[in-house]
């Protein structure tokens, strides 16, 4: 009994006061900055997921492994800014010299009825469990996305959005489509993590089927490997309520 009391007292109040404005540890690789004169060809050769090309750094493919930064710290740096989510695939490509990424990344708004209540249904389609654990962490005492009215629900019939994690294996394709069909409208698709957005490190595998993510309209992309809970919460709340 006393151990429980002591444990509870030491636990205190654990919620991060404002997840949207939280300060994350400096070591965290967040929004990348490419210098204007970066040698993209050399960087592209070292990237394990082909995220760097002539147009810049594709956040939808980036797994934030830091190889490019270690190769050429002058050209690539990752700021400790978790506001990575964007509402279109084109916005995820960071051009050399681009400075304004988080300011313009999410401009869509959900209809008014979702301002204070948003129900998510997660389908893990061959995710490695890191993205799933981070999504589960969003409802824990620290991040507590329930305070914004966001919750993960048990049935697709209760949900407003499907949040997909994982690159979509061929064995999960059918289940994914039937879950999507069971969600009543208006419904939205959210892709969380590099694997969901582009196949990530599994993009070249022949056991992956990308048609679901490429054919349907996607409302929100949350980059990361895995997507950090603060990124997820920031993306969702910006969709629901704006800045």
């Amino acid at each position: 009994m006393f151990e429980l009391l002591k444990a509870r007292i030491l636990h205190g109040y654990q919620a991060i006061p404002d997840p949207l404005k939280a300060k994350i540890n400096q070591a965290f690789p967040g929004v990348p900055r490419l210098s204007a004169g970066a040698d993209l060809a050399a960087l592209a050769k070292c990237c394990p997921v082909n995220a760097i090309s002539d147009s810049g750094l594709d956040l939808g493919r980036c797994i934030f492994c830091g190889k490019c930064q270690r190769l050429d710290p002058e050209a690539v740096s990752f700021e400790a800014d978790f506001r990575l989510a964007a509402d279109s695939r084109e916005k995820l490509i960071i051009r050399p010299g681009q400075q304004d990424y988080p300011e313009t990344s999410i401009q869509t708004r959900l209809p008014r009825q979702f301002r204070r209540s948003f129900a998510l249904r997660n389908v893990s389609a061959a995710g490695c469990n890191a993205c799933e654990l981070e999504l589960g962490a969003c409802s824990n005492v620290n991040f507590d996305m329930g305070r914004y009215g966001i919750e993960v629900v048990a049935s697709p019939r209760h949900a407003d959005a499907l949040i997909l994690t994982g690159p979509i294996s061929q064995n999960m394709e059918a289940a994914l489509y039937s879950t999507w069909d069971a969600i009543p409208g208006p419904r939205f698709l959210i892709l969380s993590g590099a694997c969901a957005i582009s196949g990530g490190i599994f993009a070249e595998s022949d056991k992956i089927r990308r048609s679901f993510a490429s054919k349907l309209t996607v409302t929100l992309y949350i980059p990361g490997c895995p997507a950090h809970p603060l990124s997820i919460i920031h993306g969702l709340v910006t969709l629901m309520r704006g800045r």
């Binding site: 109040y13 919620a15 009825q113 009215g149």
Partner: peptide, 20 residues
């Protein structure tokens, strides 16, 4: 030890469901 949902969250939830 966390903030949790607003006391009126069931009302917001109800209102949202009416539009689905």
């Amino acid at each position: 030890g966390r903030k949790g949902q607003s006391i009126f969250q069931p009302y917001y939830h109800f209102a949202k469901l009416l539009g689905k």
